[in-house]
Structure formats: C-alpha cells, structure tokens
C-alpha cells in the first residue's frame, strides 16, 4: 500500500493519538496529523486532502459518529475511508456506525495486529472496488 497516504487521527486523549501515530509509523505511514474532536477535524478534512480518517467516538464537542455522518454528507469527502477506534461497545452503536458508512470498527483496548489487519482489510476492499 502507498506509504505516503495522509492520515488524520481524531481523539480527545493525546495519549491515544500518540499511540496510534506510533503504530502507523511502525507500519510505514509517517504522514499523520492529529485533531482532538470532530469539530476541529471536519474543517481540517475539508481543507487537507486526507486519504484516511481514524476517529474515536466519545469526544466533547462533536462525537465521532457525527463526524462520520458529516464526512459522508460532504460530496468532497464522502468516499474517505473511516476507521472507528473506540471503547464504545454497545451493539446498537456498532450497527449505527455501520449504517452511517464506517469502513471498519476497532474496539479499545486493541492490539497492533488488529489495527494492521483492519487497515489492510479496508485497503483491500477499496482496491477491489
């Protein structure tokens, strides 16, 4: 996969943003930007030519599910791959995210192998499309 892909990580905890950034760098992706909630992330996405969005759900301001919906509703961003990386574990929420058009859902705490597997799966699906 193209290692120059531009990622945006959205999480209100700087610890988690740093962890994900580290893992992405391990996988060879070094073009990584951070935002601390949906409200900050959306204008960055609209202005920034991002290739991939990894977002938390539970954040002050705009939660991840609303960010996902805003992305899907924006003609320019509608096809952006979105991976939800969250501690939210209710069945209804996972279904809600799927219906809102999420590309993958990883539950916290997670392993490096799980993150890699879900990223690879999303890339494979996108390439096949």
């Amino acid at each position: 996969m193209n290692k120059d892909l531009k990622f945006l990580i959205v999480d209100d905890f700087s610890t988690m943003r740093r962890i994900v950034k580290n893992l992405l760098q391990d996988l060879g992706y070094s073009n990584v930007t951070e935002a601390d909630d949906g409200k900050t992330a959306l204008p960055m996405l609209q202005a920034g030519n991002f290739d991939f969005l990894i977002t938390d759900w539970n954040m002050p301001g705009m939660p991840g599910i609303d960010l996902l919906r805003a992305v899907r509703a924006d003609a320019k961003l509608a096809k952006l791959p979105v991976l939800m990386l969250t501690a939210e574990a209710k069945r209804e929420q996972i279904i809600e995210a799927a219906q809102a058009g999420v590309n993958g859902y990883v539950i916290k705490p997670f392993t490096a192998a799980t993150l890699k597997e879900k990223l690879d799966k999303i890339f494979a699906t996108l390439q096949a499309a």
């Binding site: 539970n58 996972i94 859902y105 539950i107």
Partner: peptide, 29 residues
C-alpha cells in the same frame, strides 16, 4: 445516549447489550 457515547464498559455498571470483544464486532459487521 448512544450518539454521544458511553465510554468504556465498566463491569456491573454498563455492561448490558455490549459486545464481548473484537471478534464479536467482526461477526456483527
């Protein structure tokens, strides 16, 4: 509510109707 999120599952507090882990999520998806 679901839209704003509940945070991590806390045993005996909000563990009703939650998935058991990544494998459950993968099966559901």
């Amino acid at each position: 509510g679901d839209a704003h999120g509940h945070g991590p599952v806390v045993p005996r507090v909000n563990d009703a109707d939650v998935v058991g882990g990544q494998a459950d999520i993968d099966a559901l998806l």
